[in-house]
Simulated scan of single mutants.
Amino acid sequence: MEEKLQFVPSLKDAFAIGVKNLVPIVLSVLLWLVTVWIPYVNVGTTIALATLPVKLSKGEMISPMFIFESKYRHCMGEYFIL
């Protein structure tokens, strides 16, 4: 038997995760806005923000400074090809 995805429970879970991590999410976005003027760093931070929902859905706690990790700048070529 197939289990169907329910919209309302999924939305409630997403909202609960977002509220629980509201401060780190807002700080991460603010730090991203600071990097808008530095193209090389901004691409890396943009890639990091794209991975944010995945990290949160796995239950990982995030630090706003995670967007500056070098692993996100190493995959710029693949990001641009995508």
Rank of each mutant, 00 (worst) to 15 (best):
Q6V: 05
W37V: 15
T45P: 00
V8F: 09
P9C: 10
I67L: 04
A16L: 13
L31N: 09
K4Y: 07
Y72S: 04
M76D: 09
P64D: 02
T46V: 03
K55W: 08
L49R: 00
V8W: 12
K71M: 01
S10W: 07
V29M: 01
F15V: 08
C75W: 14
L52G: 03
V26A: 09
L49K: 01
T46H: 01
E78W: 12
N21E: 15
N42R: 04
A16S: 08
L33A: 13
E3W: 11
Q6E: 08
K20D: 06
I81T: 11
V34N: 05
A14T: 15
L52T: 05
W32V: 02
V19S: 10
Y40L: 11
A48I: 02
Y72D: 05
E2N: 11
K71N: 08
F15S: 12
N42Y: 11
A48K: 03
S63D: 14
L49G: 02
A48C: 09
P53M: 05
K58A: 10
H74S: 07
M61E: 15
I67M: 03
A16M: 10
V34I: 11
E69P: 02
I67A: 01
P53K: 07
I17T: 13
V19M: 13
A16K: 07
L30G: 14
L22D: 08
C75M: 10
L52P: 00
Y40T: 06
L22I: 14
Y79D: 02
T51I: 06
F80C: 06
L22A: 11
G77A: 13
G18F: 08
I47Y: 00
P53D: 05
I25D: 00
W37Y: 08
P9M: 08
S70Y: 14
V8C: 04
I38W: 06
E3M: 11
I38A: 12
P24D: 04
V43S: 01
V34M: 14
E78K: 10
S63Q: 12
V54H: 02
E3T: 13
F80Y: 15
T46C: 04
T45R: 00
L33P: 07
K4A: 10
N21M: 08
L52E: 00
I81W: 04
E78Y: 05
P9D: 02
L27E: 00
C75G: 12
I17E: 07
K58P: 04
H74T: 09
Y72A: 09
V43E: 03
P24T: 09
I17L: 06
L11I: 13
L49M: 13
E3P: 11
T51S: 07
L11E: 13
C75Q: 11
P24M: 03
S10Q: 06
P24E: 06
E78A: 03
D13Q: 13
F80D: 11
N42T: 05
V36N: 09
V54S: 04
F68Y: 05
V41T: 09
V26E: 10
W32K: 00
T46M: 02
W32M: 08
V8N: 12
E2G: 08
V43I: 13
L22C: 15
P53W: 05
